[in-house]
């Protein structure tokens, strides 16, 4: 796809996204969650796909956002929307700071050590939150009621998350075309070579993770209000659901691409919504099967598969010179 077609596609999707919640009011909650999923996959891919540092711990930033927003809303006494946006912003900033600190510690590890360390971070965060009285410990926190009609509430979150998605998408579309994007890919393909060429690999990886953390923090801040409930293990630092979904959606669509995570998130979320209610009690079995099936039979993802099938459509061709 060339640039113009991609822009066109993005505009069409944006129009559908704006119209859809108005046309199908019954599905507003699901649509809002769809954008959350897209955000999950896109932000995960900044580090996981573009630099090849596969993190199972990005839920840490999501959970931080959730708790930050819930605490601000509980303690500030401000108006619902002011407190919400203030909390989101605060969550984003704290997440960035945490990403900078954690990044300087764990991003020097290579490969599976990084993956396991981040898995540990995610669960450690959940367990610590579950023991901290100030944020409700094991019983979690509730977020305030939306001041208005529940239908409008979901419409608000639909558009809020869509706006966030659009911002992140445009930012990444630009970022991946800059030399910073190239440097991230260089780290993915051969980090030793990148260092030998003088790239500041540690800095770039940390900044990439901080960008992901910022938007995950914002997302988390709002999701707490959508779900109306913050639980340390099941929603905020939900490593076994959100944490794995992020990875899975990006891989399903095609990691290391702009559109892949978007595509993967849409496919995954729609499938999930169709099947999940019929699978009560067996959902994690199904999730496990899906993970195994995808990584065993389809590790290159939808876009990776298409790229192998039609390399010339992706610009890989020999030119007569």
């Amino acid at each position: 796809m060339n640039g113009r077609k991609q822009t066109l596609l993005a505009i069409v999707i944006a129009l559908v996204a704006i119209a859809l919640p108005l046309v199908t009011p019954d599905y507003r909650a699901q649509i809002a969650l769809l954008w959350v999923m897209v955000l999950f996959a896109m932000t995960w891919d900044i580090l996981g796909g573009q630099t090849g540092y596969n993190s199972f711990g990005n839920v840490v930033f999501f959970g931080i956002g959730m708790y930050a927003s819930a605490v601000v809303q509980r303690d500030s006494g401000l108006d619902y929307f002011v407190a919400l946006f203030l909390g989101m912003g605060l969550g984003g900033l704290i997440a960035v700071a945490v990403a900078a600190i954690l990044g300087s510690m764990v991003l020097r590890m290579r490969g599976h050590y990084f993956a396991i360390a981040t898995l540990g971070l995610g669960i450690a965060a959940a367990e610590l939150a579950a023991g901290w009285e100030f944020i409700g410990a094991g019983s979690g926190m509730t977020t305030p009621l939306y001041p208005g009609d529940p239908g409008v509430q979901y419409l608000f979150f639909c558009y809020l998350f869509f706006a966030l998605t659009a911002v992140v998408f445009c930012l990444l579309a630009w970022l991946y075309r800059t030399r910073f994007g190239l440097a991230l890919n260089a780290i993915r393909d051969n980090e030793d070579k990148a260092e030998a060429m003088g790239l500041r690999t540690g800095l770039y990886k940390t900044v990439a993770w901080m960008i992901a953390a910022f938007f995950l923090g914002l997302t988390g801040g709002a999701v707490g209000n959508l779900l109306r409930f913050v639980d340390p293990r099941d929603t905020a630092f939900a490593g076994a659901t959100y944490g794995v979904w992020m990875v899975l959606m990006a891989i399903l669509g095609g990691k290391g691409t702009l559109w892949g995570p978007v595509l993967g998130a849409v496919v995954f979320h729609v499938t999930q919504e169709l099947l999940w209610t019929h699978l009560l009690g067996w959902q994690r079995v199904a999730l496990g099967l899906i993970i195994v099936a995808i990584v065993v039979f389809f590790p290159q993802g939808i876009l990776g598969w298409a790229r192998e099938r039609w390399p010339e459509r992706f610009g890989h061709k020999v030119e007569a010179s």
Binding site: L182, N185, A186, R188, D189, N190, D192, K193, A194, A196, G256, G315, H316
Partner: peptide, 8 residues
């Protein structure tokens, strides 16, 4: 040789 294999 060390190059970035997946990039053009």
């Amino acid at each position: 040789t060390r190059i970035y294999g997946k990039m053009t």
